[in-house]
Simulated scan of single mutants.
Amino acid sequence: MSDRTPASELDTAPEEVKLAVDLIFLLESHQIEPSVALAALEIVKMDLEAKLT
């Protein structure tokens, strides 16, 4: 019998899914209001899009 546990779905998920789960956990654990989180994410999105160009 192996001492390794099977990989969870998150372990094998794409990196963007892992990051999304981490961000959701961070926002919820800090009790960030959804409207504030969305506004902040829009700023982050604009910043990252600018870096792509």
Rank of each mutant, 00 (worst) to 15 (best):
S29E: 13
L52T: 02
A40C: 10
L52F: 04
T53F: 06
I43H: 08
M46G: 05
M1Y: 01
V44P: 00
V44E: 10
P14D: 14
D22Y: 07
A50C: 02
E16K: 12
D11K: 03
E28V: 03
F25Q: 05
I24G: 10
Q31L: 06
M46W: 05
S29L: 03
I43W: 06
K45D: 09
V36T: 13
E16C: 06
L41K: 08
E16F: 15
L52C: 03
T53H: 07
T5W: 01
K45G: 08
D47H: 11
E28F: 02
K18I: 02
K18F: 03
V44S: 02
L19Q: 14
M1L: 10
L26S: 08
L19A: 15
L38V: 08
P6N: 15
H30V: 02
D22K: 12
L48I: 07
S35G: 03
V36K: 05
L23W: 10
A50I: 03
I43C: 08
L23M: 12
P6R: 08
K51P: 02
P6Q: 13
D47G: 06
M46A: 13
I24S: 15
I24T: 15
K45F: 10
E15T: 05
R4G: 04
D47W: 07
E16I: 11
V21H: 14
R4T: 02
P14I: 02
L48V: 09
L10T: 06
L27M: 13
V36M: 01
M46P: 00
L10Q: 09
K51G: 12
H30Y: 08
F25Y: 01
E49Y: 04
I24P: 00
P34E: 11
I43S: 12
E49L: 13
L26D: 11
K18V: 07
E42Y: 04
E42W: 01
